[in-house]
């Protein structure tokens, strides 16, 4: 079979203890039997490990943080496009998605394809709107309260018993067992991610996740459920296993069908002792553990690229149950030249 040559730009090369999905995404696409891929790594920091991994990216470009403004980010992408002619762009951070969604048309006019959720889909699943989301789509969600000031902690205490989960809009979550811990978490999170800070009822149970892909028409193109087996102190999966859980699959299909979800997503669920599922978060992008899905038989990165290019994708129904991933850390020895090049020239 003749492979189609494409140039793919990917963010999220930060394979740290809080890893982005860029590296596993690239790994998945490189295993495609349909694409011969040239990879452009887009990085925010000059120490993102993906920059230094041999054989991963063909070029690296530093891009400005979304907080610098959408225009600055998109202008930088346009500059990179002039050099590399990007076919598909896959953003992998929650915080950058908004800028790329807003500029989807502008990018497409240049020939850069994306496959992102709509602004409405993105907004209605935001953490501070989760109770409304649960009500609308008939899914159990924990009660929550949006905190704009420390003064609201009393209101929160009237609503929930301790412990509570205190969460940031995009990232970070702290389990807080008393008033003081809530205050500390509130200040930490609001300083980093802004307002509101979300206080969520704590649901006791096992955390399970689903990585899924929706075609934007209500069809589930791929879905693989997983249970975290080893969790870091940041709550990240360092090991996981695929599950045979039809309830989770049905919940995922129902959600994608109702929302007509477009693009990758990760459902974070708590399964209680009574086998009830509570949706605690929807991440509007694929997660860092996506390579488990590839290993279990569903190449979600490849399917996402195909959807972005407007190609037909047959929904994937099967996956191997009991497949595991075990993450590891690895010290690369790197020459100063590469670090100097990305630091000074903003590209390699």
């Amino acid at each position: 079979m003749i492979k189609r040559n494409i140039t793919l730009a990917v963010t999220g090369l930060n394979n740290t203890d809080n890893p982005g999905p860029g590296v596993p995404f690239i790994r998945g696409v490189k295993e495609s039997e349909e694409f011969e891929v040239r990879v452009i790594g887009l990085v925010y920091e000059n120490l993102e490990p993906g920059i230094y991994m041999e054989g991963l990216c063909d070029r690296i470009f530093q891009i400005p943080y979304p907080s610098a403004g959408s225009d600055e980010l998109i202008e930088r992408i346009e500059y990179i496009h002039q050099q590399e002619k990007i076919d598909v762009l896959i953003p992998n951070f929650d915080a950058e998605l908004f800028s790329f969604m807003k500029n989807e048309e502008r990018l497409l006019k240049l020939g850069i394809h994306t496959f992102l959720p709509t602004l409405n889909q993105y907004k209605e699943r935001e953490k501070n709107r989760l109770p409304e989301f649960g009500k609308k789509y008939g899914i159990r969600v924990p009660s929550s309260l949006n905190l704009g000031s420390l003064g609201q902690i009393t209101e929160m205490e009237e609503k929930f018993d301790y412990p509570v989960m205190v969460k940031g809009q995009f990232y970070d979550a702290y389990l807080s067992g008393n008033n003081e811990q809530v205050k500390t978490a509130f200040l930490k999170i609001s300083g980093k991610w802004g307002f509101p800070v979300i206080a969520q009822e704590f649901i006791s149970g096992t955390e399970v996740n689903v990585v899924a892909l929706g075609d934007g028409k209500g069809n589930t193109v791929a879905a693989v459920p997983m249970r975290k087996q080893y969790i870091t102190d940041k709550g990240k999966a360092w090991g996981g296993i695929t599950l045979a859980d039809e309830k989770m699959m049905e919940l995922t299909r129902s959600l994608i069908r109702q929302t007509k979800w477009k693009g990758g997503m990760e459902l974070e669920l708590i399964k209680t002792k009574a086998s009830e599922y509570y949706l605690i978060e929807i991440n509007p992008r694929i997660p860092a553990w996506v390579y488990l899905a590839v290993g279990a038989g569903q190449n979600i990165p490849e399917a996402l690229v195909k959807l972005a290019l407007g190609m037909e994708v047959t929904p994937m129904q099967q996956y191997k149950i009991g497949k595991m991933f075990v993450r590891y850390s690895y010290d690369m020895i790197v020459d100063l030249e590469k670090f100097a090049a990305i630091s000074m020239n903003k590209e390699i």
């Binding site: 096992t206 997983m226 249970r227 087996q229 296993i241 599950l243 045979a244 009991g322």
Partner: peptide
Amino acid sequence: KEVKISDNGFVFNSKTGD
């Protein structure tokens, strides 16, 4: 039916991951 039992005594519940 989701529980797999190996001859060496390893038991895996594919529904829960235990």
